[in-house]
């Protein structure tokens, strides 16, 4: 992806964002609120039309039609995105829409069951989505994206409604799926430590620009955290994974130069 920019009513939300994504990788998008993480995900799925160049195996994403994009890229929005009276099974089945014509085939049903099982929500397949807890609903949305059978998974804060155990389960699942099925995963994540532990690469966004990109240990330094969030933090090493402990708001203006 090269020099992606997006403006909304004269306000530039994304400016010259570039990065590359390989199959089997999980990229974490981190950065403060309003830094453009969600906008970036929407641009990648072409829900929004950005300026710049997005290439998939060398092919321009703009040259692909919508059904083709939908079979290639799955998007999990941050919240909402489920209709009231549908069951869990039917909601996940919706992920098959880019593949199916009108009737539901054996294969569609199998993929749905498999996605339910992967997310550990097979037990309430016939429950209505609006009767679920926030965390369960978030798993349903992820299951829908997995049933979509796409090569690229885009997730907007996939763990925001989950308890601690579910958070690590979902992140471990994403990283396992990336590896086993050669998926490319991009996830916007607020929790720096979760991102550091499960993402191969991090992209730090601030004010719509890339503040830094690299592996978690190379990127998550006290100085970078200060530049991104304006806080003082101590960064520890937990068996090779950086662990960020936020301390206090920073008064230090010694900011990292934006590349």
């Amino acid at each position: 992806m090269q020099e992606l920019s997006y403006s909304y009513r004269d306000r530039q939300v994304l400016a010259d964002v570039s990065f590359a994504l390989d199959a089997g990788e999980v990229i974490g998008l981190v950065g403060p609120n309003g830094s453009g993480k969600t906008t970036l995900l929407r641009c990648l799925d072409r829900i929004l039309d950005p300026e710049g160049d997005i290439r998939l195996d060398g092919r321009d994403l703009c040259s692909m039609n919508r059904p083709e994009i939908s079979r290639t890229i799955a998007y999990v929005p941050q919240n909402g995105g489920t209709s009231g009276s549908a069951t869990v099974f039917e909601t996940v089945l919706m992920g098959r829409r880019p593949h199916l014509r009108w009737s539901v085939t054996e294969e569609d049903e199998r993929k749905v069951s498999e996605a339910l099982s992967l997310l550990g929500i097979g037990g309430f397949a016939s429950r209505r989505v609006d009767r679920l807890s926030g965390g369960e609903r978030q798993r349903v949305l992820i299951a829908r994206a997995i049933a979509q059978d796409a090569r690229i998974l885009l997730l907007d804060e996939p763990t925001s409604a989950l308890d601690v155990r579910s958070q690590i389960e979902v992140m471990a699942l994403l990283s396992r799926l990336a590896e086993e099925r050669r998926l490319a995963v991009v996830a916007a994540i607020h929790d720096l430590n979760l991102a550091a532990r499960y993402c191969h690469l991090l992209l730090i966004l601030k004010d719509g620009r890339v503040l830094g990109r690299g592996t978690p240990p190379s990127l998550l330094t006290g100085r970078m955290v200060r530049a991104a969030y304006g806080i003082e933090a101590s960064v520890k090493d937990e068996m090779g994974v950086p662990y960020v402990v936020p301390l206090r708001p920073s008064n230090n203006d010694d900011l990292v130069e934006i590349e």
Binding site: R42, D45, I47, R66, P67, I69, S70, R71, I73, A74, Y75, P77, G80, G81, T82, S83, A86, E90, T91, M94, G95, R97, P98, Q148
Partner: peptide, 14 residues
């Protein structure tokens, strides 16, 4: 069916 899930999701589903 897809529109019931919201515009964003519907668009993403093609």
């Amino acid at each position: 069916n897809a529109l019931a899930e919201g515009d964003e999701v519907a668009k993403s589903l093609g």
